[in-house]
Amino acid sequence: MTPDDQLALYARARFARAFEAAVARARDAGEVPGVVHLNGGQELVELGVFHQLDGARDRVTGSHRSHGLALAAGIAPAIVAAEIMGRTGSLSGGLGGTQHLVPAGGLFMGSNGIVGGQVPLAAGAAFAARSKGNGGIAVAFFGEGAAQQGGVMETMNLAIVLGLPLLFVCVNNGWAQSTGADASAGAPLASRARAFGMHAESVDGGDLGAVDAATRHLVSQIRTNGQPAFLEAHVSRVGGHYHGEDQGYRKDGKLTDPLDRLRATLVEAGVTAANLHRIEEEAEARARAAFEEAALEPMDDPSTLALWARDLGGLT
């Protein structure tokens, strides 16, 4: 990754963080219907993977914590914001919401309200890419909590057996809501993937250089050999499982914010404080603007539900 790429990625990461802060403010202001799961701490992993992807042929599925993936895939921030706020002018018009971002098509295939539910779906996208012969790959983002789900392990096996171009990205933040990593046997999780015969790497998800090297290598390998691979990225969950959670169970002490770390690297490389400050201000302003724009969208009329009921075969 060139210094310019690094700076551009820092800007996107800052925007993702600012966007999540705006989600939190909207939630606190009562403008978001339910609980929201923010992605603070895993931005560099998400953006590092997307840096290797091709919007025309690749597909990505994510967990409940996927606002950042939708943004990284290039969906307009105001549309994502409107979806999170349950408004029209969004992906679904108010039917999906924060955990169920389901775009009509494109690079980001969807987030998921069921832990691990998205992983088999990515196998399907990988299968479709293989069938179409377009050289596309699929990526499943999931946490180490989801790694304990049977369907995730089934999919690791199936991906090997069928030879699917699928990258498993386990974003290991050490916490399955309030359950620690000691609930996961056979650590590191990358070694589970190796037991399935899959190439697997582990990285520090706060180290952009390491993330970039690993994702570049893994994505290129999958495109070349058509076989699945596994990336375990260790990150710190900057906030709670959900925004506003009392994290009384947490004992992992003071966290190093990966964005601060990247910023320090950039300063060392000679990027001026003024330049960084401008990037940060812009991120903040764009995030605010996205939510202001989304807030102008009306809520859909409840009559839409009667239309759906008829559409889906309801008897009355």
Binding site: R59, G110, P120, A123, G124, F127, T155, L158, V161
Partner: peptide
């Protein structure tokens, strides 16, 4: 075998694969 796909006994995974493939333009 690329269009008549035999699977392990993994209903969660292969049904999910079908769903994801349907979302990606296939007819499983």
């Amino acid at each position: 075998p690329a269009r008549v796909v035999d699977t392990p006994i993994s209903e969660t995974s292969f049904l999910g694969l079908g769903i994801g493939a349907a979302m990606s333009g296939m007819k499983p």
